[in-house]
Design a protein around this nucleic acid. Sequence first.
DNA 1: TCAAACCCAAAAGTACTACTTATTCAAGAA
DNA 2: TTCTTGAATAAGTAGTACTTTTGGGTTTGA
Lengths: 236, 236
Amino acid sequence: MGSDRHEEVLDVLGAAIANGELAPGAVLRSDELQERFGASRTVAREVVRVLETMGLTTSRRRVGVIVSDPAGWNHYDPRLIRWQLDGSGRAVALRTLTELRSGVEPSAARFAALRATPEDRGRLRALGHRLEETARARDLTTFLGHDIAFHDLLLTASGNPMFAQLSTVVAEVLAGRTSHGLMPEEPQPEAVALHVEVAVAVDAGDADRAERAMRGIVDQARDEIAAAVSSNLGGQ
Amino acid sequence: MGSDRHEEVLDVLGAAIANGELAPGAVLRSDELQERFGASRTVAREVVRVLETMGLTTSRRRVGVIVSDPAGWNHYDPRLIRWQLDGSGRAVALRTLTELRSGVEPSAARFAALRATPEDRGRLRALGHRLEETARARDLTTFLGHDIAFHDLLLTASGNPMFAQLSTVVAEVLAGRTSHGLMPEEPQPEAVALHVEVAVAVDAGDADRAERAMRGIVDQARDEIAAAVSSNLGGQ
DNA sequence: TCAAACCCAAAAGTACTACTTATTCAAGAA
DNA sequence: TTCTTGAATAAGTAGTACTTTTGGGTTTGA
């Protein structure tokens, strides 16, 4: 997509809104934006259009571009998620996403057990095995890689596009919690065992067991992050 | 937002893509769009920009606007959801959304139990009561209204914006399954009782119980729609 | 003959100007 | 005071001109 003024301006402005630097109710004028970013009217207009479709702003004639209340934002937009994750609200965003994970992934495991292709079932078991190995070897970085691949595959294999779309989010959360150290990460034996359990259950087509095992994983993660957030208020 | 050429063109084009009338890989040219919709360059360009941010298309110089693979779409965009719900893929979309519900709502109930304001707890119990009454009176339409309000309130009270955003989706599913008759809807006594159970548990701050009760509700809904879809393939 | 460099045309991207429409705010009349 | 009217304003729409990228065909050289 090359050197894109559009993307550039969108990133700056979107991030400013996503992180509350431009509070809800704040009013911008498109010509003011042109000047501020040295962009043409075309670019400014299209950026505003995009922000509008993301629910971040509304435009009203004779008034200007108004920053919307967070309640109206499209919180699943990958861009918005990234802005929040890269900004001051990182800790809160991670908690929000982790909570979503805790709801979605057990269901995804269930449907994966019911609908995964034979290849996916095999791959999942293989990844489970890899996780065991790398955990034993205390190789944290490759463990993380396999962990991400595991959850990604599972969400995709669920056959539900709305689950599948969350794979990038889950990857972000998994990577974020280790890199950011928000959650002291040392592959815990029980967690690894549960991953294997999920893989085996999915392979066997045992939906209930897959769901239950996955719930074990995400509940643990959920409780850990809750503890981390409450002890380390606000994060950052 | 008034009479909006933009919105108009976006709706037609977006719906066409969402329902597969324009298959992935199909190439459009922006000047061709201008002509086809009798819109100005400005409008055509901004529509394409929006479709691009929704992940429905990508634009490449010297090639044109390419319809993306569904895997890259932002499936949580309210617009896309509506297009799918209003189009030929309605049955599939309802199933997809119901599955999402089945994952999210139990978690939402849990967090509502932990974080709801006193007012919300009270309101939830009141709605539970109303559900009992209208179910007894076999007043299906007001029952549906209260049902929607119940789930909406619960998702909002969870304090997680990503859960809260799904309230419109849930409303759509609840309304859709009765209106569309995809799921023979007669308020079932167990379901009503479970709603009350959720309300009581949330009120009492009993997260586990709230989650469990809500799981009972959505699992039932999930199984029913699965049965309906498998017996009535494709829906339509 | 084949491949790598090169050039051209096509289509999106960017910029700018002119005009239209809706809406707020205020002045003035009932 | 309240309603009507009108002017000012800012977004919406339209259209033209120019820039940049890039896919594909063509030439050139080994």
